[in-house]
Design a protein around this nucleic acid. Structure first.
Lengths: 220, 220, 220, 220
DNA sequence: AATGAATGAGAATTCATTCAT
DNA sequence: AATGAATGAATTCTCATTCAT
């Protein structure tokens, strides 16, 4: 253990910090490569190259390609989901405004982070890694759906929304965001005609949702 | 031999017939394997095995794995799209009823045929085969979008729909069907909790759409 | 046997003639392909295509690729060698003049027929087909060398040539022709700078030979 | 390990050393296999086996079979040619003596090294690898011919040789050596009757050449 | 005699994983 | 902790050969 020669309170020397950051650097590089190529076509050589380490080093942190893949998925998702849960727990205002903030936040993330590739990766590999699909379903989809279902039920209870079928509506709310993520990660590069106007799409979606959720005889 | 419904008095031209059927048999087997594994993880050995031919035979009909993949995508898609276009061209009734029939038909196809796997495959491999993505975009997405856009514009012109932003609305209409196809091909097998109620989802979607598209001051 | 309906003395119908010519047509096509690609890289598909028959037909006349190869070598060589032997047997004139006619004839053949490729083929495949090499050595090289050795010995006995070491001289006489054949079949196509002037080369060779074989104190 | 002549005090950098030697070991093994089988029939499995490495290791050093083949040709040729050029540049003695030393040296190399197989390989594969043929022509044949042409012109200018046609004579000088190389690499193994007496052949060739190049009215 | 669809053994190449240093 | 040389199993693709028609 020759790497702890320094007393406390001293700024950690750069290379020590790197050492601790290694796993994250590798995960970040892997995310890029998996995003571009998919799981099977991604080469660990390339991951190592982009992470600035040797191929062997990958195996110091991840037992194999599959676990690295799972780590990528987990790393991309959990912080976002936790933030969304915090947001909903902390907000007790009008339900539609909350829905609005939620969708807008997700759209922003899809546009500005690499999280958009996660659905694509999970969709593509669900058949080859059923446990990964189950994990994703349990940790991401179910939690996300539950969160939205809670929001809807609250709005219905308060009379803000008409009494829609919650389970279906949750999926209808999510679908356009999934569409956006998939578009960004699969078609944007291969297709002319400029990027998808995801902000406009979400605005239109919210416009539709407002009308669709409006209590029957209620005010516009 | 077991696929011959007219047994009598025929000189049993087994081979001739097979030769003509071979490409389709291979494409069907390939569709299954690609659907289960994705492009890269699909083994031609397995395709050959399921098609009941030897590995070499694949190469009599398709020059390589990639072309076989493209043939699978094309074979799955074109007939469906053509039918949808025929349906719309032939119908001049109320626009929402037409939309209803269209979405219902697509949902039925997603539920009862293997077409649901096509989006998953294209999404997964768009990065590795940009021309495939471009082909799919051109031949499927653009045509499908154009078809829906025409329907919307007609409805707006006739006063059946409020003047929505057509391009966004097209995507909002499609998104839940994409969600359904992806769910079926990626999560249904890996997840407990029963299959997605796609018919119910589409019904709810149509319910929402009716409200969202309803002209402003129109009848409830 | 529906192919003998015609009485005698009638010109054979074309397609019957073709049938008898098949083996030679195949050998001719095979010679072209082997010459271009070598044995291993030659594809029977291509041979069949150039011969205007199907792949299966090749196997009606030749049991396998190797035998077809041998047939090509044999067909190219034997007639030429027999002619040379006839030429020498029939001629009893001055030995150098005979040598002159012999080398000139061979050079003409190398320039105007496809026989030039035979040495290249045998050289290339001797390692893979030792019996072919042995056959070629026995039937072509040995016979050719014996023929030249006889000529030299006759010239020496008659005092036309100085008493050279016959075995070496035979090889020295042949080497430039081998050079010419190899050049034509291997380098001419791949190299700029125009074809080899084989006639000039043989003339120079004969000039050198006249001087080299001239009896010691003899006339210039 | 057994190839280390300085055993003491060395930190036994087995691997480092091997790494540097690997390409040459592989090229040497490949030369043997290509020599025996020709390019197409050579199996990389066998090359790897003879080099004492695994198949995959070949690809660490050479991108494919073709490049390995070219490396073999290059490795065999360049040192020899450079030496011949040095020899000529350094010698200003009688031209025929120099020619004698040159041919003798080449014959020695043909007899004692594996360089004899190079012409056979190039001849065999010129049709399949025209660039290789062009490379060989440019780097070996042209340089070799230029070297001999220079020698001849010098001898003619000095009155040591009669004014022969230089371009043809160069080829006549080379042809028996080519004959020897081809014999050794293609027929010696397949044919009874003992090896070719190449030294005797070259002696006879030089004897002929002396007479053929002797100035017209010169001394015997 | 002729065809050409079908076969399957065989070869080149790739790449995740290991391990001596 | 890090390296990167080495491995070899796995996979695509080729092509001589067979054989039902």
């Amino acid at each position: 253990m020759p790497d702890e020669p320094h007393p406390l309170h001293e700024p950690a020397p750069r290379w020590r910090r790197r050492k601790e950051a290694r796993p994250q650097e590798i995960v970040a590089a892997a995310m890029d490569v998996f995003a571009e190529r998919g799981f099977a076509a991604a080469k660990l050589d390339e991951v190592a190259g982009r992470a600035g380490v040797s191929k062997g080093t990958l195996y110091l942190y991840f037992p194999n390609k599959e676990e690295l893949f799972k780590a990528v998925i987990r790393a991309a998702i959990l912080p976002n989901l936790e933030e969304a849960e915090r947001m909903l727990a902390a907000d007790d205002g009008p339900s539609f405004a909350l829905l609005e903030r939620l969708l807008t936040m997700v759209a922003e993330r899809v546009l500005t982070t690499r999280i958009a590739v996660v659905p694509k990766l999970v969709i593509a590999e669900a058949g080859n890694f059923p446990e990964l699909a189950a994990f994703y379903h349990r940790e991401v989809i179910s939690r996300g759906f539950a969160l939205l279902a809670g929001l809807l039920r609250r709005g219905i209870a308060r009379g803000e929304f008409r009494p829609v079928e919650v389970e279906h509506t949750v999926r209808l709310i999510v679908a356009p965001l999934l569409f956006g993520a998939i578009w960004r990660s699969s078609f944007e590069a291969a297709v002319e005609g400029g990027p998808l106007d995801l902000r406009g799409l979400v605005a239109a979606h919210l416009d539709h949702l407002r009308r669709a959720l409006r209590p029957e005889g209620g005010p516009s």
